[in-house]
Amino acid sequence: MDVMLHLNGTHLHLPLAEYGFERRFDERGAIAWMQENWCTSFVFSALYAALVFGGQRFMKPRPKLNLRRPLILWSLSLAVFSIVGAARTGSYMFHVLSSSGFKRSICDQSFYNGPVSKFWAYAFVLSKAPELGDTAFIVLRKQKLLFLHWYHHITVLLYSWYSYKDMVAGGGWFMTMNYAVHALMYSYYAARAAGVRVPRPFAVLITSAQISQMAMGLTVSGLVYRWLQHGDCPSSVNNIMWASLMYLSYLLLFANFFYNTYLRRDADCKAKKTE
């Protein structure tokens, strides 16, 4: 079944069947709710930080917990959610790209209210709150908590809720890329938690995909700023500034993680072998 897509006054047929829950989703109500309540993301972030660092102090004199089965279920649930989200938003973005071009895929707001994607756009921003639960497993299992981990969780939550309320340009790219990377990442976590020995190149692939995502996020932000000057991209200088700072910080942090985890470790291993 074809569904109608409205892009800047142009009607296009989208060759994607909508599921019933996608068709019935009230995106106007969702956007209105977010416009009134997006600041709640600061409350979630503050509670998250307090529980994370308070939890570390609480666990310090206590033995670590195993939590293997809950971790498998948690990671598998997020993997399935991300895979489906990537498939639905990816198919939508592919159609817009192939029918209307790259600029339209960035600047048009149809991703927030169009068929198929409207449900998954809202599901994406809401999912950033429960995803904070990732850190609970790190704290309770007494694993090393990286700055990159908790910083990334907080800033993605804040920026996602802040941007969804204004339906800013670039959102389709940001969300689809994140869905796709998380599909790989949570599948990897679920396999590791289940005791599957995942080949090392797969971990390298995931971090490389994250770095590519951040580089593309910076590129999209730059293009939104360029086209904003011509009145073609609905956004604001403030939003573009926050997006650019966020993606630049991610790019540097993930590149540093890649270097320390894969390149420097390999170099250290080779040096030890030659001694």
Rank of each mutant, 00 (worst) to 15 (best):
L218F: 05
S221G: 14
R69L: 08
L73I: 06
I206N: 01
L145H: 12
S110C: 13
E18K: 01
F42V: 01
I138M: 04
L71F: 15
N260Y: 05
Y186E: 03
C39F: 15
A243G: 15
K60E: 14
G217F: 04
F254D: 10
P201C: 01
L73H: 04
S99Y: 02
W33G: 12
F124H: 09
M177E: 00
F42A: 03
D268W: 05
R265N: 07
P61E: 06
S41F: 11
Y186T: 07
A46N: 02
M241C: 15
I138G: 01
T135E: 07
V116L: 02
W38I: 03
I154M: 10
L253V: 09
T10A: 15
S249W: 00
Q56K: 15
Q210F: 03
H95F: 13
A194W: 04
T89I: 01
V220N: 05
M241H: 14
D26N: 15
P15Q: 11
K165Y: 04
C107K: 10
R200H: 09
K270C: 01
W74Q: 07
A129S: 13
H11K: 13
Y164M: 13
E18F: 03
A183N: 01
G20N: 11
K273V: 06
A121P: 02
H6M: 12
T40L: 13
V198D: 07
H11D: 15
I106W: 12
K64V: 00
F174A: 09
I211F: 03
A180K: 00
F53R: 03
V204P: 00
Y162D: 05
I138V: 14
L51E: 01
A86V: 08
A121H: 02
E22S: 06
V237I: 12
G9H: 10
G172F: 03
V168R: 11
R192S: 05
E36C: 09
Y188R: 01
M59H: 07
P115A: 09
A180R: 00
F44M: 02
L126H: 00
D108N: 12
K270W: 03
A183L: 02
A86L: 02
F25R: 07
Y259R: 11
P130S: 05
T155C: 12
R197Y: 04
S163K: 11
K103V: 00
K128D: 05
L205T: 15
A32K: 07
G171A: 10
Y112L: 07
F119P: 01
F202I: 10
F137D: 01
Y189L: 04
R265P: 02
F174W: 06
P130M: 05
G231Q: 08
R68I: 00
